[in-house]
Computed example of a mutant assay.
Amino acid sequence: MAMQRRFAVNHSDVFPAGVEMKGEVQPVADFNAPKREDGSRPQQLDKETGLPLWQVVVTDRDEEAGKNEAGVSVKIAARVQPVPPSPVEVTVPGMGSMTMRFIEFVGLTALPYVDDNGNRPRLAWSYKADDICAPGKADVATPARPDAGKAA
Rank of each mutant, 00 (worst) to 15 (best):
E37Y: 04
A33Y: 02
E24C: 04
A2E: 01
E63Q: 10
P42A: 11
D30C: 04
V25M: 10
T109H: 11
P85T: 02
A151L: 05
P85Y: 04
N32F: 03
E104L: 11
A65D: 09
S73A: 15
Y113G: 02
C133S: 13
F15V: 01
P42N: 11
V57Y: 04
P52E: 06
E37I: 03
E64A: 12
P93M: 10
Q26I: 10
L111E: 03
E104H: 13
G136T: 09
N32E: 14
G149H: 05
P27G: 06
Y127H: 05
A134D: 15
T109W: 08
R36M: 09
K137A: 15
G66A: 11
R145Y: 04
G136F: 12
E89Q: 03
N117L: 09
H11I: 02
P27M: 09
P34H: 12
A77C: 05
L123Y: 01
A144T: 02
R6K: 13
A2L: 01
R61K: 14
N10G: 10
T91L: 00
S40K: 11
Q43L: 05
V19M: 05
V83R: 13
K22Q: 14
Q43Y: 03
A138T: 00
S126H: 06
G23N: 10
K35R: 15
A124Q: 13
D30M: 00
M3V: 05
G149N: 12
R122I: 01
A77F: 01
F7A: 12
A29M: 09
A33K: 08
D60L: 04
A138M: 02
E69N: 15
C133R: 07
N117F: 07
D38W: 00
H11R: 07
E63D: 15
Q4R: 05
A124Y: 06
L123P: 01
D130M: 06
S126W: 00
V57F: 04
M100D: 13
T142S: 14
V56T: 08
P16E: 07
P27D: 13
E104T: 10
D116K: 04
V106I: 03
S97Y: 04
V88I: 10
T109D: 15
V72Y: 09
F105W: 09
S12C: 07
A124S: 15
R41S: 11
S86W: 03
G39R: 04
P34T: 09
T49R: 08
P87I: 02
P42D: 13
K22N: 12
K22T: 10
G50W: 09
G66K: 06
P93Y: 07
A129H: 06
P27H: 09
K35L: 14
L53E: 05
L45K: 13
T109M: 12
A2Y: 03
D130G: 05
R5H: 14
V72G: 10
I103C: 06
P84K: 06
L51G: 00
D60P: 01
E20Q: 15
V28A: 09
E64G: 07
R120L: 07
I76F: 03
S40H: 09
A141W: 05
P52D: 03
D60R: 00
M95F: 15
A152I: 02
A151M: 13
V9P: 05
A33L: 06
D46T: 04
M3I: 07
R122V: 03
N119G: 13
V57I: 12
P121K: 02
L108M: 00
Y127N: 03
A152S: 10
D115C: 02
V114L: 08
N119L: 09
M3S: 14
R41T: 07
P112S: 12
L111P: 02
